[in-house]
């Protein structure tokens, strides 16, 4: 792992509290938050503007849900690493998200440590 190359992180969640929480809690040296979006549609706009390397993605959101958003983001940038952060705890949803191109799954509620572990594991692929 070459810790020198910084990676851009975009946070997608309809909850402001969760967005702020992820930004505050993530302690991966390589990651720099470049923006946060409250729904899928906003996320795509922001993605095209900031070209992030890593995305945390909520699933239950207004406007455009997370699964569809994952699919769109992967179509724009296949190398993007997406960590799904959702309360939807059923396996079928996880499979769907991974099949659409997500790289990890973190179930809400989560501790700071769980978040950092999940991000660290995600970055093993980077």
């Amino acid at each position: 792992m070459n810790a020198v190359v910084p990676l851009k992180l975009m946070i997608v969640d309809d909850s402001n509290i969760i967005r702020r929480r992820i930004e505050r809690s993530q302690q991966i040296d390589r990651l720099r938050v470049v923006g946060a979006a409250a729904n899928g549609r906003e996320a795509i706009e922001l993605f095209e503007r900031t070209n992030p390397d890593v995305v945390t993605m909520d699933l239950t959101m207004p406007e455009m849900d997370g699964i569809e958003c994952v699919e769109r983001l992967v179509a724009i940038k296949p190398a993007v690493l997406i960590l799904v952060v959702s309360a939807l705890a059923d396996k079928a949803t996880a499979v769907e998200a991974i099949a659409k191109g997500a790289n990890g799954f973190l179930c809400k509620p989560f501790t700071d440590r769980q978040l950092n572990d999940a991000l660290a594991e995600l970055l093993q692929d980077a």
Partner: peptide
């Protein structure tokens, strides 16, 4: 949202939750 979403672990995917 979190409590309802977590319930899908037992109720399955057809337990559709709104925003």
């Amino acid at each position: 949202n979190t409590i309802s979403g977590n319930a899908r672990r037992d109720f399955g995917r057809d337990f559709v939750i709104s925003v």
